[in-house]
């Protein structure tokens, strides 16, 4: 049995489901709770898991700099996927967990993956005190504002501290984020303003780094439209202190969404079409061709920038592969951020 393949089907619905429009999952929630615009997010409770939703993730990316000025990227992700809308104890639980961790340097990209069953303590998330873990990878702290983040792979490890420097950001309508014209949606909020200090362990040795991190929290039961094949997601932090999140869901008709986060902490959700991303340069990686340089425009905020990958080969060769890596921003605004591209089949 190709466990990994089967698992990928279950775990990575949001990443790849749309590519094949997996059996009925895009349209029918099968007993899972579906996102409701009337839901009011409550913290810290909503930092924890929502087992009655099909999928959920804790997704942290960071842009960092070493003592010599070298740029680094870091990813720590915990996915939750439920086979049925309930929790449970022991092997019987339908909750499955998957972790992805990566470090990106200008010329290398290190990746590791972990899988675990819920119910036995190997992986899980608690809201208070906050802890998210799978095996020895952890993201935990007394509360959500001060976190310690660790992960390791066969050829890399990291151990960094995160301190909050701004408020949580609710995307869409109070955290209700629409994903297609047909109305598919998720609950989606971010903490885009972590300050980071810590140590990366690479084959060459340890590197002390400082930087900033962006944590995405999202859960849903029916995230994509049947015709949607994948997405391109941008999280950009400008030197001006402003930040923005924008994504394009590629489908029969592209659907875009963006959130503007002003330096003053005010946020603004922008509707479909306000945000555009145009590929500028394509690159061949892992047998596929992907855009690694983009023109990103948000005219409402005067943004017209070029987003370029720090390392074009930031390929996540995991159960379901995708591209995820740090980017630099130039043009109307300068800065850096992260780019995620899914659904590019070979």
């Amino acid at each position: 049995m190709n466990v990994k393949l089967a698992l990928a089907v279950l775990l990575l619905l949001p990443l790849q489901a749309a590519a094949q429009g997996f059996a009925g999952l895009g349209t029918d929630a099968e007993g899972f709770t579906t996102p409701d615009p009337a839901t009011v997010l409550e913290f810290p409770a909503d930092h924890g898991a929502h087992p009655d939703y099909r999928i959920e993730w804790w997704y942290l990316t960071a842009n960092m700099t070493g003592p010599d000025g070298t740029d680094y990227g870091l990813q720590w992700t915990l996915f939750r996927s439920a086979l049925a809308p309930r929790d449970g104890y022991g092997w019987d639980t339908p909750q499955l967990w998957m972790g992805h961790a990566a470090i990106t340097t200008p010329d290398a990209h290190f990746v590791a993956e972990r899988l675990a069953r819920g119910g036995i303590g190997q992986a899980g998330v608690t809201a208070t005190p906050f802890a998210a873990w799978i095996d020895d990878w952890t993201m935990q702290g007394d509360d959500f504002d001060t976190l310690r983040l660790t992960a390791s792979g066969p050829d890399f490890a990291y151990d960094v501290g995160l301190t909050v420097a701004g408020p949580l950001v609710l995307h869409g309508q109070n955290g209700y984020s629409v994903k297609s014209a047909a109305g598919q949606a998720s609950h989606y909020y971010s903490q885009p303003s972590f300050k980071l200090t810590g140590t990366l362990t690479l084959p060459q040795g340890e590197v002390v780094v400082t930087g900033s991190a962006w944590l995405d929290r999202e859960w849903s039961s029916q995230p994509l439209g049947a015709d949607q094949t994948g997405w391109d997601w941008f999280s950009l932090s400008f030197d001006s202190g402003d930040k923005m999140m924008g994504f394009v869901l590629r489908g029969a008709k592209d659907y875009t969404s963006a959130t503007w986060i002003g330096a003053d902490g005010r946020t603004e959700a922008l509707p479909d079409g306000a945000f555009t991303a145009t590929p500028l340069l394509e690159h061949r990686v892992a047998g596929r061709t992907l855009p690694v340089e983009w023109r990103v425009q948000l005219p409402a905020k005067g943004v017209d920038v070029t987003v370029a990958a720090l390392n074009r080969d930031a390929w996540m060769a995991t159960s379901v592969p995708y591209w995820e890596g740090p980017v630099t921003v130039s043009g109307s605004h300068a800065g850096r951020g992260y780019l995620e591209m899914t659904g590019y089949d070979d």
């Binding site: 466990v3 089967a6 089907v9 069953r117």
Partner: peptide, 26 residues
């Protein structure tokens, strides 16, 4: 066996398409 953590190749072999992880686990 625990299919999520088992190294590649451990467990029933060559059943790729037949495998239904959900049915196997729950």
């Amino acid at each position: 066996i625990e299919p999520l953590t088992a190294p590649r190749g451990v467990g029933p072999l060559g059943l790729g398409e037949q495998a239904d992880l959900g049915a196997f686990l729950t």
